[in-house]
Amino acid sequence: MEKLLKIMHRLRRECPWDAKQTHQSLKPYLLEETYEALESIDEENWDELASELGDLLLQIIFHSEIASEKGCFNYDTVLEKISKKLIERHPHVFDKEIVKNAEDVQRNWEHIKVKSEKRDSLLTGVPATSPALLQAQRLQEKAASVGFDWDSIHPVMEKLEEEWNELKEAAETGSLEKIKNEYGDILFTLVNLARFLHIESEDSLRLTNKKFIKRFNYIEKKYDNDLNAMKSAGLKEMDRLWEEAKNKE
């Protein structure tokens, strides 16, 4: 770690590109590296994951170096804060708190977080910039930590059917505002359903996107990436190739 810190310190002094970066200019890279790490996990490419985690660590070092130059904080501050947080939020490990299961641990984490950070709301800690599906799941998890939740998956299924009917009614009105609201309600309920099924909505959709890309690429290759040929073939023929690609998986 000391070696990496020294490298970054030197880059900030001697490399024109590194020297001109700011917290704001680095935001896209932080997000990009995070998603590249997620992709490595999805593909179970552990060598690549090691590389991507290094890229993520670089972003942490980079931001810490910039903050240090401004006299705000440094890398040691980052380590101190996360160490303190982990100890405070695991009283069942570092103190005498008793928990029965992982759900108890999560509830304690949320309650300690609200108390220690003096937040006005349990939901304040969910970043507004989070991907919408992830944001919805975190909001639901936090609300559930104080008992605002369904008792089982069955009411969620019923709620989904209710929201689906409301969307159909909204679609018949032609009102984009109503359609948008009802569609959002369906997505929120689907996220809730995913939570009861113990899966992450964001992960599920990302995997489906990946599957779509793979199958569509199969169709493209059949037409040698000739877009005009694809248009001429029509939906029925391309759908046949889609099923062909699906059966090869």
Rank of each mutant, 00 (worst) to 15 (best):
E249T: 13
I82D: 02
H23Y: 13
L56I: 15
L79P: 01
E36D: 07
T77G: 09
D226K: 02
S68R: 15
E117T: 15
E32Y: 04
L241M: 06
D76G: 13
L86G: 01
D76R: 11
E177G: 02
A19D: 06
I98N: 13
R215I: 11
A171P: 00
E249G: 06
D95F: 10
E117H: 13
N74I: 02
L38W: 05
K214V: 11
H92W: 15
A194I: 02
S175Q: 07
L235C: 06
R13M: 13
V93H: 08
L241Y: 08
N217L: 14
L241S: 03
G71R: 02
Q59H: 04
L38S: 02
D18I: 08
T124C: 08
A233K: 04
E220L: 14
L53D: 00
Y75S: 00
E2H: 11
Q137P: 02
P131S: 07
E39Y: 03
I219M: 05
L227Q: 11
E44G: 00
D95M: 10
E244R: 03
L53A: 05
N192H: 10
A136M: 10
K210N: 14
K178W: 00
G184F: 00
N209Q: 12
V114H: 03
I66Y: 01
H154P: 00
G54Y: 09
E14R: 07
A102C: 03
D226S: 03
S121R: 06
D104I: 01
A194L: 00
R195H: 05
E200T: 05
K96E: 15
F212Y: 09
D224K: 15
Y29M: 15
P127H: 13
N165W: 04
E14D: 12
